[in-house]
Computed example of a mutant assay.
Amino acid sequence: MATSTPTEAEYLATLSSQNVSPLWTVLKKMVPPSPNPRAVVTTWPYSVLRPSLLQSGTLVTAEEAERRVMMLVNPPLGAPYTTDTIYAGHQ
């Protein structure tokens, strides 16, 4: 008895039930062939952020937010991005 080989579309359709997705279908989106950064040069001086960071510790309880983190947000990218590929914050 011969078994048939599934088509690529049939194969791909089976993957979502396993909670996986093939990287090769989105790799160009994640790693473009040439750099296309949208982030701009931005600084977050700790001396400027420190008062707000300390204030969050008195205003927001651990029950309200497990981690009181001030995200370093790059203006054109929006939260949670610090750069095109990195998230950073002060805790």
Rank of each mutant, 00 (worst) to 15 (best):
L54S: 04
P80W: 01
N19I: 00
P45R: 05
I86F: 10
T58I: 10
A13N: 05
E8N: 06
N19V: 01
V40I: 10
S17E: 13
Q55T: 10
V69N: 08
P76N: 08
A79W: 01
Y11V: 08
L12M: 04
S52H: 09
S47I: 09
T25H: 04
S47A: 13
S56H: 03
S4E: 08
A2R: 09
A79M: 03
P76C: 05
T85W: 06
V48L: 12
T3Y: 06
K29V: 00
T25W: 02
L49N: 10
L59P: 05
V26F: 10
T14S: 14
A65K: 13
Q18S: 13
A88G: 09
L59E: 15
T3K: 10
P45M: 04
A9Q: 08
T83V: 02
Y11G: 03
P80Y: 02
A62K: 13
P33K: 10
A65L: 13
V73I: 14
A39M: 14
S34W: 07
M1V: 14
E10Y: 00
T42V: 05
V69W: 01
A79E: 05
P45Y: 03
Q91Y: 12
M71K: 15
M30E: 11
S4I: 05
G57E: 15
T14L: 08
V40K: 11
V69I: 11
V41Q: 15
S4Y: 04
H90K: 08
A13Y: 00
R68C: 05
P51C: 07
S56C: 03
R50F: 01
E64C: 03
E63D: 15
N19A: 14
N74L: 05
M71E: 04
T82N: 10
Y46G: 04
